[in-house]
């Protein structure tokens, strides 16, 4: 655009400028959270600022691929939501823009450490701990004991009752794999995955599918992020959420500004707004039970109480890198998934 305007005769510059000034401010938002949350964020930002939001919802993997594909000609401005790994990867590949927000003082430490591990190119907006949930009716009907720890899931009586996603296709399941490796050490972690394998009735494609199946009564125990399990319980399904006793890993949902964004000012406005208490309180309206990164934001009483959960010191930098990811997944493919069940 600028390039062109230099070349055009001056009188036309004035014309073109007057036309573009008449245009409304706009923002292209790539959103990787659940659909209704994305819609609510986009609409509320429009209401708060008068900036038109053009929102596209895609999973974090898809969005990452899209931003990468568009890198020579970015079409998006802000990428909000979705698990942290692809955001970190985007930072690593220099697809996103560093930005230090004035809102930092209001944020939890984990949100800021996410930013500092990526050279300020991303920031935490919510976090959620890994765990599992079970269908209380089915557990009772099958006379099964109530599980409380990760290792409980290895017991032979749970054979055919546990479901998790396939780490190859789901970020949630990869977090599970990485958590076990960090929690128990690599060898014991893989032994755990092998033991679990013989109790698994299905590796689903999508990360939250196991607990949804449990809600419907099509499965007993689902390994998922705890906020997904809470959501099922709140919707009225007989689901109980478990924070495993050994401790557990977690994800940090993140936000980044896309490098070369066409609407950089609006992108920064959105970025600051999304970290405010008002914006983060919106999560409760759509039953999103993640823990918000703003210290002042409300947490739902149904949400898992993060202070009572033993969180491991999850190494996002190492386990988010593509080399380590590839290695673990290949090992899982070769050592675990091929075992007879």
């Amino acid at each position: 655009m600028n390039n062109i305007k230099r070349l055009v005769i001056p009188s036309l510059i004035a014309m073109a400028a007057s036309v573009s000034a008449a245009q409304a401010e706009k923002l292209t938002l790539y959103c990787s959270a659940q659909e209704d949350w994305c819609q609510l964020m986009a609409r509320s930002f429009e209401d708060a600022t008068g900036i038109d939001v053009n929102m596209t919802r895609k999973s974090s993997g898809e969005t990452f691929a899209q931003i990468k594909a568009e890198s020579s000609n970015p079409k998006g401005d802000v990428w909000w939501g979705g698990t942290g790994d692809p955001h970190l990867q985007a930072a690593e590949e220099d697809l996103t823009e560093p930005y230090v927000t004035p809102m930092r003082g209001e944020l939890h430490d984990w949100a800021i450490s996410q930013a500092s591990s990526a050279g300020d190119k991303t920031i935490g907006i919510y976090s959620g701990a890994l765990g599992y949930g079970y269908n209380t009716d089915l557990l009772a009907a099958n006379n099964l004991p109530e599980p409380a720890c990760w290792k409980d899931l290895l017991k032979p009586e749970y054979k055919g009752h546990v479901q998790m996603a396939n780490p190859n296709s789901s970020g949630t399941a990869y977090t599970t794999l990485a958590t076990m490796v960090q929690l128990f050490g690599e060898d014991e972690g893989f032994d755990f995955m092998k033991g679990l394998h013989s109790n698994i009735n299905q590796y689903t494609k999508s990360g939250s599918a196991p607990i949804k199946a449990a809600g419907r009564g099509e499965n007993t125990i689902g390994i998922v992020f705890m906020h997904d399990a809470v959501k099922q319980a709140v919707s009225g399904f007989p689901v109980k959420v478990v924070a495993p006793c050994e401790g557990t890993g977690y994800e940090i949902g993140s936000m980044s500004i896309i490098k070369g964004a066409r609407n950089m000012d609006e992108a920064k406005k959105f970025y600051d707004w999304a970290l405010s208490t008002d914006a983060q309180n919106l999560a409760l309206e759509v039953n999103a039970f993640q823990v918000p990164s703003n210290k002042g934001a409300d947490t739902s009483p149904s949400a898992p109480d993060m202070s009572s959960i033993k969180l491991i010191d999850y190494d996002f930098k190492t386990y988010g890198s593509s080399a380590e990811r590839k290695r673990l997944l290949q090992k899982w493919d070769e050592d675990v998934s091929t075992l007879p069940q």
Binding site: S59, G61, A65, N168, S169, G171, Y174, K205
Partner: peptide, 9 residues
């Protein structure tokens, strides 16, 4: 489908 949209991309 999952080769395209899944985590493996």
């Amino acid at each position: 489908f999952f080769a395209i949209v899944g985590a493996q991309y």
